[in-house]
Amino acid sequence: MPASLNELNGAEKAAIFLLALGEDHASIWEHLDEEEIKEISAAMSTLGTVNASMVEELVVEFIGKMSTTGAVMGSYEQTQRLLSSILPPDKVNSIMEEIRGPAGRTMWDKLGNVSEQTLANYLKNEYPQTVAVVLTKIKADHASRVLSTLPEEFALECINRMLNMEPIQREILEKIEDTLRVEFMSNLARTSKRDSHELMADIFNNFDRATENRFLSSLEERNRESAERIRALMFVFEDLKKLDPGGVQTLLRAIDKDQLGLALKGASDELRNLFFSNMSERASKILKEDMAAMGPVRLKDVDTAQMSMVQVAKDLAQSGEIVLASGSSDDELIY
């Protein structure tokens, strides 16, 4: 809820005013252009509860005088209902999709949140000129990963089109955006529901070791197939031994050094040696001395340190800085 009227911007004030007027006066929206509708709709959908005194103060600001209107609630549902009374369904869906995400405001922002493999699988069936336009609109690092995933001859043709691209007419760009929104993003939303075993693997990854073992053991007694599938999808601390040297060094730069020794206290010799071998001789010696000086440590503290390292590794993998392989043999990296 906004604290005071002075903290509101123009779009938020307009959103409160239109909510207060309600659906009976929805014809006001007809006098706004599409960008104004989008901006006000975005503000409206995140307002929350606005108290009656603020509504009255705002109405007084707008028209000079008006009696108390009562509180209004800005939400996705209320916004969608109001828009539906004045705009065609496809326009309403387009605007609400812009508001909800995935994470970006524009179509090109949204494509930046789609994995390169998924985007490449879609684009490889499009005309090279269309692909070239798309790749010039997304961020360079994302475009490079998409290009490297496309078939080589097709990728080279797209690169050639990008090198010789003329300024793009607005109508063509809008048509490509509409096609992406309807044919790609909508299908992606319908097919991106996570497998329940993947969801559970993420949850199990965040258990401490004792809880994880207890639940997996109980699940194995009831449904061995599901337990095995969850275990295969989980990324655990020991899976860090599958990192390449560059990945280990990247991880070493990112983790809390105080947690490293504690985490390695509970690691296998193979994993310890992997980390030691990717450190300088002096750093390795200091770490070994620190670990020896710790003496006995609590399993809970080791679990916490290991989980912290795993989370950092996952964040690095998400940003494309390292490649992780899970416990599944299908994910083994071949060099």
Rank of each mutant, 00 (worst) to 15 (best):
K13Q: 13
A14H: 01
A15W: 11
A15L: 08
I16L: 10
I16Y: 00
F17Y: 15
L18R: 06
L18W: 01
L19M: 04
L19C: 02
L19Y: 00
L19N: 00
L21T: 03
L21G: 02
L21Y: 03
E23Q: 11
D24R: 11
H25Y: 12
H25V: 06
A26N: 05
A26K: 09
S27R: 10
S27H: 10
I28A: 12
I28S: 06
W29M: 13
W29N: 11
W29T: 11
E30F: 02
H31K: 13
H31Q: 11
E34F: 09
E35L: 11
E35D: 12
E35C: 02
E36F: 04
I37D: 01
K38W: 01
K38L: 13
K38H: 04
E39A: 15
E39P: 05
I40N: 05
I40G: 04
I40R: 08
I40M: 10
S41Y: 07
S41R: 06
S41H: 03
A42W: 06
A42Q: 02
A42L: 08
M44Q: 04
M44N: 01
T46M: 12
T46R: 14
L47T: 00
L47E: 00
G48E: 01
T49C: 06
T49F: 11
T49W: 10
V50L: 09
N51Y: 04
S53A: 13
V55Y: 02
E56Y: 10
L58T: 03
L58Q: 02
L58E: 03
L58M: 11
L58P: 08
V59M: 15
V60L: 15
F62I: 15
I63R: 14
I63E: 12
I63F: 03
K65N: 12
M66Q: 07
S67Y: 09
S67A: 14
T68H: 09
T68N: 10
T69C: 08
G70A: 07
G70Q: 04
A71T: 10
A71C: 01
A71Y: 02
V72K: 05
M73Y: 13
Y76R: 14
E77L: 09
E77Q: 07
Q78K: 15
T79N: 00
T79L: 06
Q80K: 15
R81A: 08
R81F: 14
L82W: 05
L82A: 04
L82I: 07
L83D: 02
S84K: 07
S85H: 08
S85I: 07
L87I: 03
L87P: 03
L87D: 00
P88G: 01
P88K: 10
P89T: 05
P89D: 05
P89V: 06
D90N: 08
K91Q: 08
N93F: 06
N93T: 09
N93R: 12
S94L: 13
S94K: 14
I95E: 01
M96I: 14
M96L: 13
M96T: 02
E97P: 05
E97I: 12
E97K: 15
E98Y: 05
I99F: 04
I99R: 12
R100P: 00
R100N: 09
R100V: 15
R100S: 15
G101T: 08
G101I: 08
A103F: 09
A103M: 13
A103I: 12
